[in-house]
Design a protein around this nucleic acid. Structure first.
Lengths: 117, 117
DNA sequence: TTCACGTGTAAGGAATTCTTTACATGCGAA
DNA sequence: TTCGCATGTAAAGAATTCCTTACACGTGAA
């Protein structure tokens, strides 16, 4: 599935996933070809659990896809590869995205008032 | 100045700035026309100090531009408006961005080793 | 059996980010 | 002078995110 114009929530998740130097490098590495977790961790020079966490974040955001495969010598290998995506960031695309925001922050309730001194 | 293909560090900063529902709404609001801080805070329904911080984050990222102006009745008004930007997110653009990453995380030093049990 | 290498995940602390509260300034109008 | 509305910022707590350490399991080869 190709992500082009995601909803506001999806966009926020994607951007948050990409807004990290480490994850950006991970994406770049994977863009050069699929790889499995342990090997990729050594490539990049970080611990496997840490990479694992970042991979999850990227996968949840729909930026990469993982598949568990069995190597010839019987080992379980988890391969990841970049998903297809093409996101355009522009004032107008942000407006569209903001319209479909459901989550979180600004509670539509009463505006917090600033205590006048 | 129009931002099109920012450096890795700049991109991370921009994405981090946009990866927040509140700031996305702020961008969307400002895309509909420039506004000053207090008014915008009421519009969106958040406290002014909070908005102030988010605006700073957006401005630092180069996504908005602020200008302090004097209203006719002598009040200092800080107007913000969206900057021009056009960022394309694709596997290949990420690769380019990652090449110019200077900051932070993965220390090029020795890879942290996982204690074998 | 032990070692090397693959997987996953939980627990804890460090570091950031987000948010509120509170105080500071300045100007015009009542 | 006081009030309303504009600005900015500091301090403190809550909530997240990031990272390390440590444990779990499984398989093939020595």
């Amino acid at each position: 599935m190709t992500v082009a114009q995601p909803t506001g929530d999806q966009l926020v998740e994607m951007l948050a996933a990409l807004a990290n130097p480490l994850r950006l490098r991970i994406m770049a590495k994977l863009a050069g070809g699929r790889d499995y977790v342990s090997h990729l961790a050594r490539e990049i020079g970080i611990s496997r659990p840490l990479l694992h966490m970042h991979l999850q974040r990227l996968e949840t955001a729909g930026l990469i896809v993982g598949s568990l495969e069995l190597s010839e010598d019987g080992k379980a290998m988890k391969y990841y590869q970049v998903a297809e995506f093409d996101v355009h960031l522009t004032a107008s695309t942000l407006v569209e995205a903001a319209e479909t925001l459901t989550r979180s922050d600004p509670v539509p309730g009463p505006a917090p008032k600033e205590t006048p001194r």
